[in-house]
């Protein structure tokens, strides 16, 4: 059993995970249908007018996509940790309160409705997903508050029912959509890492980073909150305020991630469990390590998704479940026997 967490251990592990992530991002940016050389990509040609295809591919094609995958992975895994703690439920994931179907509905309405307008020259689909996600989670949260302050069953049920209802709406709209619309919708729903432009990446990256940092400062209190409402109150945690802040931040970063990449399952559920199996349940450590591991996992999964059947590409959601599933089962069987579920 590991010794209790110290700031030194936490720093060391986080730094190691960050290094691993950086290495993986660099390595994955060199992998692809077109082999590129890092040396060529980083060199500044004396003649700036001369074409440097390696540099172009590295900077304009691969890097944005890899950064996007890292951001989405970090947000989903981090939000997964927080939702599991707040709902005191190991089966919770970032989508459980209807964020996924809300975003999906926003997107399909934008596509089927044929929204022609643009925002600073960009399609409104991302924005619609974001608004749909936050609107839905706000609705579900409101219903949960009405049904009970001390227990989360009402909140969970509200999430499940709203999810089912919105999914039915999505299916209805999909079934009346025409060919091109249908393709765009399904492509979005399956989750994908299309290359975003840099401004969108910077803004959403900033949002996700800020959200994760905020959650890190709430994480010491998540330990006792995940044990129970009354326990947290009696050790002096203002539960309502902390829960509201954590819900808002986690829903926000999930909504950003979903708007960027569509629905990518598995990361938000499994990465927190994998990290917990190896390093224990302390949220001060679980949150940063899960975020970094989620980023690493999605970067690798996306690299596989875009190379394995090149030049065609698979939806990354296929890879996360196909690779992550068996890997997690191995971890579960090996470590679960040591009494993780009882521990």
């Amino acid at each position: 059993m590991p010794a209790p967490l110290t700031p030194g251990t936490l720093l060391l592990r986080t730094a190691t995970a960050a290094m691993l992530l950086a290495c993986a991002m660099l390595a994955c940016s060199l992998i692809g249908p077109q082999a590129i050389s890092l040396k060529a990509a980083l060199s500044t040609p004396a003649d700036s007018a001369a074409p440097n295809p390696d540099r172009e591919i590295f900077l304009r094609v691969r890097s944005p996509r890899i950064i996007l995958a890292a951001l989405v992975g970090a947000a989903l895994a981090g939000a997964g940790v927080v939702f599991q703690a707040l709902l005191r439920n190991p089966l919770a994931d970032p989508y459980i309160l209807g964020i996924s179907s809300g975003a999906g509905l926003g997107v399909i309405l934008a596509i089927v409705g044929g929204l022609g307008w643009t925002l600073w020259g960009r399609s409104p689909v991302t924005l619609c997903a974001f608004v749909g996600a936050l609107g839905t989670v706000w609705l579900v949260w409101g219903i949960g508050r009405i049904t009970g302050k001390y227990q989360v069953t009402g909140l969970l049920l509200a999430g499940v029912v709203v999810n089912a209802f919105l999914s039915a709406l999505i299916m209805f709209l999909t079934s009346i959509a025409r060919g091109q619309q249908l393709y765009a919708t399904i492509f979005w729903l399956m989750g994908n890492m299309t290359e975003e432009d840099l401004l969108v990446l910077w803004v959403s990256g900033g949002g996700i980073a800020a959200g994760l940092v905020g959650l890190f400062f709430l994480s010491p209190k998540l330990n006792i909150i995940s044990v129970g409402y009354h326990d947290a109150r009696s050790v002096g945690v203002p539960v309502e305020r902390i829960e509201l802040a954590a819900f808002a931040l986690a829903a926000f970063i999930t909504a950003v991630a979903v708007s960027l990449s569509g629905l990518i399952g598995f990361v938000g559920l499994i990465i927190p469990h994998a990290v917990r199996l190896v390093f224990g349940p302390d949220h001060r450590q679980l949150l940063p390590l899960s975020s970094l591991t989620g980023a690493l996992f999605l970067v690798v999964a996306d690299t596989i998704a875009r190379t394995v059947v090149a030049p065609a590409q698979l939806p990354v959601g296929v890879i996360t479940a196909l690779i992550g599933g068996p890997f997690f089962l191995v971890l579960l069987i090996r470590l679960g026997r040591k009494g993780y579920w009882l521990a």
Binding site: M1, P4, Q84, A85, R88, N89, P90, N223, S226, V227, G228, R276, G280, P281, D282, Y340, W341, L342, A343
Partner: peptide
């Protein structure tokens, strides 16, 4: 609630 496997000391 035996949700997340905290140890005695952590608890």
């Amino acid at each position: 609630i035996p949700a997340f496997g905290f140890t005695v000391e952590e608890t």
